[in-house]
Design a protein around this nucleic acid. Structure first.
Length: 708
DNA sequence: TTTGAATGCGCC
DNA sequence: AAAAGGCGCATTCAAA
């Protein structure tokens, strides 16, 4: 076993050096243990344990703190190879006084040994081991990286930029001609004032009154004047009539020359930045719930101009809102997923992460940054790329198996790019996980029957209200395009789909009614039907809540009002061993009156177990996938794992291994019941169906079907 | 000029 | 009588 703190860093270094021993080590069953990751899991993903430093952990496990000298050199940008060797040795294994049994390595060892004890005591060892293989998988994904079609990105960026210019031109026609400041449609203040009326405060350089004189302030300048005999001065040059009034030198080197004097005079009118106000008339009535915390120049509320509000305004025939919505979308897409230069010339956006020499992006997959044990991604975030129905960004993500690449690596090649991208997704992962965790008999049966949950809810909704319909009828109504009233059925299904997600995680009837457009009564009826249909879910949520309250310990924290108060922190442990923790928050006013000062947040308690366990399953099978790829030498260098997004894995493959890779990914990812029933003694009775897609880029994927 | 809060939006 | 959750990144704006 290789043990290290944030070991991904060291593994990536070794891989970049071309260390072949590492692969051999893995092949013979070698494992890793990251003390940073283990600490995070042992502490139930408590925010304090996110990306913890070894320096902070070591003293808690009987170790020492790092030698500051080395740390200081690193922070100053000195390369390790440039640091004196004896200093590095002291840093790594301790000083001679410590018998060379100290330093970073001893600290890591102490932390590791302590963590093993804790993990065993808390029933977390298997879970941590499985996640460590998942860590190897993401390390491999980061190392492999994502290939970007830079030419395609450039073409798309040009099109988007031209479109944006068009929207800007249209929008600029709606700025009042007398607007005295630089109107910015991206400014929430400007947009709100223009649409809903309001006063923009802007700064401009302008003259001002001098407090001492009451006159316009002016610069002071000095001028050279002629001195007159009466002691006054003048800027007029002497002429024949006036020269007798001017003073002259009567002796010395300058004898006969006119005397001069430096005098202070009022110069140009001074200006300074001052606040000015410009009011816009109201074009349309704002909804008071759109008010933000911000105010305009006269302290009136600024209203949100976010996407959904702009969409709502479009129904009111406001002439420019369509262009404004287009601009918002284009700026988001260009700025976040392509590239943009700000006023200072700084570049931002995803394309700034593309390596110039090989057009690869090596994104980060972070294991210790969420409270639910999910992964996060950054630099760039590979987990929030716009979907294909929204944007073409994903078309930039292509295969690395170009003709040139194949030539270098001795892989046969028939076209200019023989590669394909593969995405393997769990279907409805969180619903499946809810079945596993709650054990609800009906939910599990429905999952085994591969029921369409949204259609089932459509049926339940109508069963609970006036007209009764069967599940079979709902299925036909909502999904059969030939059904006489298919359009209405599809709409009903969409509403129920929104309902499902909101309901599952604790949204209130009011929120759901608002979101789905259903009436409050309709929503409540559906919620009740749901509880009756799946009583195990209700019981499970109650059990989590009672475990949290039972385990809760007090702690102090700053409240919303800036005062230190006592809150509670409680825990719940999943059957896999993963721990979850929640803190309480200030109770609402009515509860405080009855002496209840703090409460736990039910939506958080409902959400973490499902979201976290889903993430855990994906990481576990990610580890299995990685082991499989290692054992097969990445299919002879023809397939690479490259990304994971909460319920899916991506691979970059040569088409010659497509069927094999797709079949293997599907089989391994679907093996969750076998893994957890054997290794964890669980009793999972529901399938984890995986759909596999492949295609020339991540925006053009087709379903893969196993050969008969 | 830098920093942090607020807002908004991309994904699951 | 309250409550979908989890992220990362970009922009604006006010304060330091």
């Amino acid at each position: 076993m290789l043990v290290g703190h944030n070991i991904k860093f060291d593994l990536l270094w070794e891989m970049a050096q071309g260390n072949q021993e590492l692969r051999a080590f893995y092949k013979r069953g070698g494992r890793v243990w990251c003390t940073q990751y283990a600490e995070y899991l042992i502490r139930a993903q408590h925010p304090d344990a996110h990306m913890a430093a070894l320096n902070d952990l070591a003293p808690k496990y009987g170790g020492t703190t790092k030698i500051d000298e080395v740390k200081a050199l690193w922070e100053a940008g000195v390369l390790t190879s440039q640091i004196p060797e004896d200093l590095l040795v002291d840093y790594l294994v301790g000083t001679p006084e410590e018998d060379r049994n100290g330093g970073d390595i001893r600290n890591t060892e102490l932390v590791f040994l302590g963590q093993i004890q804790k993990a065993v005591a808390q029933g977390q060892l298997k879970m941590i081991q499985d996640r460590m293989d998942g860590l190897c998988a993401t390390t491999e994904m980061e190392f492999n990286g994502l290939k970007i079609d830079v030419a395609e990105a450039g073409r798309r960026l040009k099109v988007l930029t031209a479109d944006l210019a068009k929207q800007d031109e249209e929008l600029n026609g709606f700025i009042p001609a007398d607007c005295p400041f630089d109107f910015n449609w991206s400014s929430r203040v400007h947009a709100s004032c223009l649409i809903f009326g309001g006063t923009v405060k802007y700064q401009k350089q302008a003259p001002y009154l001098d407090e001492a004189t009451g006159e316009l302030a002016r610069k002071q300048e000095t001028e050279t004047h002629f001195l007159l005999l009466d002691g006054t001065t003048t800027d007029l040059a002497p002429d024949d009539n006036s020269k007798s009034l001017y003073a002259t030198f009567v002796s010395g080197k300058r004898k006969g020359e006119y005397k001069t004097k430096q005098v202070k005079v009022l110069g140009e009118i001074k200006v300074k930045y001052q606040d000015f106000f410009y009011s816009f008339p109201r074009l349309t009535e704002p909804n008071e719930k759109w008010a933000t915390k911000n105010t305009d120049g006269y302290d009136a509320p600024i209203y949100s101009t976010s996407g959904d509000i702009i969409v709502e305004l479009a129904l009111r025939n406001i002439p420019f809102v369509k262009a404004l919505r287009s601009k918002q979308k284009l700026e988001k897409e260009i700025g976040t997923y392509y590239a943009k230069q700000d006023a200072k010339g700084e570049w931002s956006g995803m394309l700034t992460c593309v390596q110039k020499h090989d057009h690869m992006i090596h994104h980060k997959l972070n294991h210790t940054s969420t409270v639910t044990s999910r992964l996060s991604s950054s630099d760039p975030n590979g987990q929030n790329l716009p979907r294909g129905d929204k944007s073409e960004v994903k078309a930039q993500f292509v295969s690395r198996f170009t003709e040139a690449y194949c030539k270098v690596h001795g892989i046969p090649c028939e076209t200019d790019n023989d590669g394909e991208m593969v995405e393997a997704d769990y279907s409805q992962l969180e619903v499946v996980v809810q079945g596993v965790l709650t054990g609800d008999a009906q939910l599990c049966q429905d999952l085994r029957d591969r029921v369409d949950f949204h259609c089932k809810r459509v049926a339940a909704k109508f069963a609970a209200t006036a007209s009764h319909i069967t599940y079979e009828y709902a299925l036909d109504w909502c999904k059969n395009e030939d059904h006489a009233d298919y359009k209405a059925g599809k709409k009903e299904r969409t509403k129920c789909k929104i309902f499902s997600f909101q309901r599952a995680y604790g949204a209130g009837a009011a929120t759901i009614a608002e979101e789905t457009g259903m009436s409050l009564e309709e929503t409540q009826a559906l919620m009740q039907a749901e509880d009756e249909l799946y009583p195990g879910v209700v019981a499970f949520n109650a059990a989590v809540e009672s475990a949290v309250i039972k385990s809760a310990e007090p702690f102090s924290a700053l409240g919303d009002d800036g005062k230190w108060k006592t809150y509670r922190r409680g825990y719940w442990q999943a059957p896999t061993g993963t721990l979850y923790t929640w803190r309480s928050y200030d109770a609402p006013e009515y509860a405080r009156k009855r002496g209840k000062l703090d409460t736990f947040n039910p939506p958080e308690m409902k959400n973490y177990p499902v979201q976290g366990t889903g993430g855990e399953f994906v990481q576990c099978t990610g580890g299995r996938l990685w082991r499989h790829f290692v054992a097969n030498d990445n299919y002879g260098g023809r397939a690479f794992l490259v990304n994971t997004v909460h319920d899916c894995n991506w691979a970059d493959i040569h088409k010659s291994v497509r069927d094999q890779v797709c079949a293997d990914m599907k089989r391994i990812m679907e093996s969750i019941p076998e893994i957890y029933n054997e290794r964890y003694g669980m009793n999972i009775t529901v399938p984890f169906p995986v759909e596999v897609e492949y295609g020339p880029n991540m925006n053009k994927l087709h379903h893969w079907v196993a050969a008969a």
